[in-house]
């Protein structure tokens, strides 16, 4: 049916004992887009992903994946999607190539079909030379690339990635993003969770910000910045504990001010003009920085600054 979303959740709830990990969320993912679930630890992102991946039955609400019901057609849905879990679950007792082979067999794929596909995926993951090595000694980035290659063995229409780049160094992250762009340009729908704002801005067409099991906001990265933040942020850095007594002197200049122990954040649409106005007030900050507002500012505004464990 044209126009029907690829994934559709309405009033979706996941309850563990007395804890509501996911508390009645609504969302829809369209075919071909890259969709993100953004949120702090414990926001319910992974629980939502597991329900979509049909490895966790929903407590209540509606959920449809590829037009099917996970409760009834779990195996059929799983056969058509790819999953990159938060922690690599590679088979350490097998080689790189065997990992792809065995995983393909779990999907009932015939050997003749698997053989060329495995070589193609090894090239995609830049692992051809390591094909016959054991998985254990591979670097974190290589294991991640192999996990992604493995998730593509059944040529999925939909790829679910749970914190795909957590724990990787910058080079490995960029290499991985590059691979994900390529998949997206081939028409694969991407759904990912992340708490890296730059990752969400780079990869996602649309995203929802989750907080304590609910959806706090929804939109495109730029749309969210426009709605919940200003275009630019001026950061005034002071000595430790000194920022608070300067706050009153500049509070009227920006649209919004945030006081942190060592910094004042001035949210404004005209960064340079704000800096000039601040300088006229004869404050002496240790440093002044004008930067573009990011999703991180939106995120912190929506989910707060206190630490979640």
């Amino acid at each position: 049916m044209p126009g029907e979303p690829l994934i559709y959740g309405r009033g979706l709830v996941k309850q563990f004992g007395t804890v509501r990990a996911v508390d009645s969320i609504d969302f829809a993912v369209e075919r071909g887009e890259a969709f993100g679930f953004l949120g702090p630890n414990g926001a319910g992102k992974s629980s939502t992903m597991r329900m979509i991946a049909c490895v966790s039955p929903r407590t209540s609400g509606d959920l449809s994946v590829l037009g099917l019901d996970p409760d009834r057609d779990g195996a059929r849905i799983r056969g058509r999607i790819g999953v990159v879990p938060q922690e690599d679950s590679l088979d350490l007792e097998l080689t790189v190539r065997e990992n792809l082979y065995v995983y393909g067999r779990y999907f009932d794929l015939p050997r003749s079909e698997l053989r060329p596909r495995i070589e193609q995926l090894l090239r995609f993951a830049q692992l051809t030379e390591r094909g016959d090595d054991r998985v254990e000694p591979l670097s974190g980035g290589m294991k991640r690339r192999l996990t992604i290659a493995r998730s593509l063995i059944n040529e999925p229409e939909l790829l679910l990635l749970d914190e795909p780049t957590t724990g990787l160094d910058p080079q490995a992250r960029h290499a991985l993003w590059d691979r994900l762009y390529r998949l997206k340009s081939q028409g694969v729908t991407l759904v990912l969770t992340t708490h890296y704002m730059d990752e969400a801005e780079q990869l996602c067409d649309r995203l929802v910000v989750m907080d304590r099991g609910t959806v706090a906001a929804e939109g495109s990265p730029q749309g969210l910045i426009g709605r919940y933040c200003t275009r630019e942020v001026v950061e005034l850095r002071f000595g430790p504990g000194e920022s608070e007594r300067h706050a009153d002197k500049v509070a009227d200049i920006p649209e919004r001010i945030e006081v942190l122990p060592d910094r004042l954040l001035l949210y404004t649409d005209q960064g340079d003009a704000t800096v000039e106005a601040v300088q006229r007030r004869a404050l002496a900050p240790v440093s002044v920085l004008v930067r573009r507002a990011t999703l991180e500012d939106v995120f912190l505004r929506l989910t707060g600054r206190q630490l979640v464990d």
């Binding site: 195996a75 679950s89 088979d91 999907f107 059944n154």
Partner: peptide, 14 residues
């Protein structure tokens, strides 16, 4: 430890 079944259950296997 090896979490083999977590990976297996993400496929059509139940």
């Amino acid at each position: 430890y090896a979490k083999i079944y977590d990976a297996v259950l993400a496929t059509p296997m139940g």
